[in-house]
Amino acid sequence: MRRKTMLRLGGALISLLTVGGVVVMLLPYFWMVSSSIKTGIEVFDLPIKWIPDEIQWVNYPNALSKGAFGVYFYNSFVVAFAVMAGNLVFCTLAGYGLAKFRFRHRELCFRLILSTLMLPLEIVLVPTFLVVRELGLVNTYGGLIAPLAVDAFGVFLMRQSIRDIPDSLIEAARMDGCSEFGIFWRIILPNCKPALGALALLAFRDNWDQFLWPFIVATTDDLKTFPLGLAQMEGIDSAAYHEIMALAVLGMIPAAFIFLFFQRAFVRGITLTGLKE
């Protein structure tokens, strides 16, 4: 009897902790949304009014007019989708090759690819810039996209997930008359959708977000991405918090959308990966 009450009390406490955690994790976002619909003075009002008396939708058009945000959003989309596509294609191909074929130096290839996790762009910034410059890609979409188009983590994720597809499916397809690429397209891809979803989500998030690389390689205004635009606007008008928050809300929407779209696939994709070995 006592034990049972104790247990239930403990359970309730843990649930409370869980919910409290959610609040801590999400509070900044609530505050962001709330501030984005206040006036520049109201944002610092005390006590905090989470929903202002008069909602200032006008912050949004005002904020957008403070820079070429149409262009910045467009550029971010281009980069995010192109990099996502590159990742989906190349990481999946490589993951398939590493998971299901035997060839000389396969393990070496895998290790080489994994080792690039230690060479993030932040570290090879200077020489990568020089390579891109050498290729004549400075201030082009190609230059923005190309260095990011393959990511070792993506290869790892896809390899793990494809390894779980039984070999016999591939062999059955081979006997059914499928070409090797046909097997990839018709058998492998449809059977690793969760991992593809996880990869798509992460690639989109990380590259919708690209800041450092565009910051280095895109110096003209028409190639700036949204984060650059926002940082620039913030630099000029750092006191206009209500408008900065409005832009932040807008910047959050695409990734949030992608997340909601892929979230089931995402959690399953990571779960399936299971990180065996």
Partner: peptide, 19 residues
């Protein structure tokens, strides 16, 4: 090539395409 052998196989785990 297996596809050109005119041979069909029933696998132990059946290997049906799940999708």
């Amino acid at each position: 090539h297996p596809r050109d052998r005119d041979i069909a196989m029933v696998f132990q785990n059946y290997a049906l395409y799940p999708h």
